[in-house]
Design a protein around this nucleic acid. Sequence first.
DNA 1: TTAACTATTTTTAGACG
DNA 2: CCGTCTAAAAATAGTTA
Lengths: 159, 159
Amino acid sequence: MVRTKVEIKRIEDKAKRHTTFTKRRQGLFKKAKELVKRCDAQAAVITFSLAGNVFAFGHPSVDDIVNRYIVATSAPEGDEIPVHKETEKKDKDVVIENNVDQEDEETTSFELPVGDMGMEELEEFEVAMVEMKKKVVDRINGIISSSKEEDLGLPYIQV
Amino acid sequence: MVRTKVEIKRIEDKAKRHTTFTKRRQGLFKKAKELVKRCDAQAAVITFSLAGNVFAFGHPSVDDIVNRYIVATSAPEGDEIPVHKETEKKDKDVVIENNVDQEDEETTSFELPVGDMGMEELEEFEVAMVEMKKKVVDRINGIISSSKEEDLGLPYIQV
DNA sequence: TTAACTATTTTTAGACG
DNA sequence: CCGTCTAAAAATAGTTA
């Protein structure tokens, strides 16, 4: 029939799990698109299935969002990120939830100050960021080639 | 009363737009968490409000997903990304939707081959990736300091 | 501002083709 | 592996506190 009312836990059956993944991923993307349209916001959704496939949505683009995220969350100098509880600051802040196991206890939310650089300025660096992304991969290639013997049969970069 | 049935277009009123952004962002995160739990998948959701605040969720972490995304979507050598229609390949592929205006015409979906590097191997490079992220920001700092005059009053990195 | 409330819309699990 | 269908569950726009 239509007996719904699932508990949110891992689906053991592989076929069912994949079916649900597909359906819910589509629903998640749809929700993200609606958020972007109705709220004039920018957003990205990136998902990896167990099989290793990646599905991503982003507006204006996934790379834009990823780059902006990297910029926004990388501390300029030190590495200590001030962790607050909830936003009691004026206007700019970042909230990051890092795992899924919290029971709404607001124990793993982070908040840190962000500057005033707007999108117009950020977009000036988009090209540079994309180039940087390539450099990251190049660097990884270097790490791979220096840490793995080629005769191990590992593909060079492949990622 | 409760007359719902909104059309998905930009909300002009700022207060309403922000309220909707908050509600829908929470809903989006909840959906992402359910997807992760039920399907044993990895996912990240990153949103930027118009005010410039960033809210992000990721499992196992936003950075993990972002790094994995960067690795998965960066072509090893050339830059030409083969664009297919829909997944008719065997197992590994990437689908990227880059904008929100498409009317399900599947005109802006990309698909490109991805290798077999699994999470275990990918995680070996997590630390390196995080360091790379810092280097990206350092590089941007360099770009800023070389392209902007300090007397313009622009904060150094700030982003 | 932020938090309920709730009628209604929207999503989705399961079944079927 | 698609898509379609449907009842139940979940999300949410508009309102109120």
